[in-house]
């Protein structure tokens, strides 16, 4: 895959999120005022649909379910947030938002296992 059309930039108001379908890959477009992010459609915490549970203020995306939050400029995790936000590279051309998609980004809730040996201190 390559640069894929998401939506027109004008369709995503500042400080809002929009769920789009990019060649059958669901992506949430976040407008944080001074830029855009393209992210998987769910919160990496408990799979909340971010287009509903997410709010953006002061360039910070917060999932209102349990207040996990990320700075959308630096992608820093804020507060008690434990997992980073995954992002697609995104650009704006002639008012259109495009994301560079090689494969669907997921948080692998099923495969990833935070209870595996690697995560644990047994001493």
């Amino acid at each position: 895959m390559s640069w894929t059309y998401l939506c027109d930039a004008a369709e995503v108001a500042p400080n809002s999120l929009k769920l789009v379908d990019a060649n059958d890959i669901r992506i949430v477009v976040a407008n944080y005022g001074s830029g855009f992010r393209a992210i998987p459609p769910i919160c990496p915490h408990m799979e909340e649909p971010l287009e509903e549970s997410g709010v953006i203020a002061n360039c910070v995306l917060t999932c209102t379910k349990h207040l996990w939050a990320w700075n959308l400029i630096s992608l820093d995790m804020l507060g008690e947030t434990e997992k980073p936000l995954k992002t697609y590279e995104v650009k704006e051309e002639d008012g259109k938002l495009l994301a560079y998609i090689t494969e669907e980004l997921t948080y692998d809730f099923e495969e990833e296992d935070d209870m595996d040996d690697d995560f644990f201190s047994k001493s």
């Binding site: 709010v55 203020a57 939050a69 507060g79």
Partner: peptide
């Protein structure tokens, strides 16, 4: 609770560390 959190974050500009609630859901 959801409506209040949205108000606090968007209108109030509060960070998660300035909001306390027990997460029952």
């Amino acid at each position: 609770v959801d409506g209040a959190l949205r108000t606090l974050i968007t209108q109030g500009g509060l960070s998660p560390s300035a909001i306390r609630y027990d997460k029952f859901g």
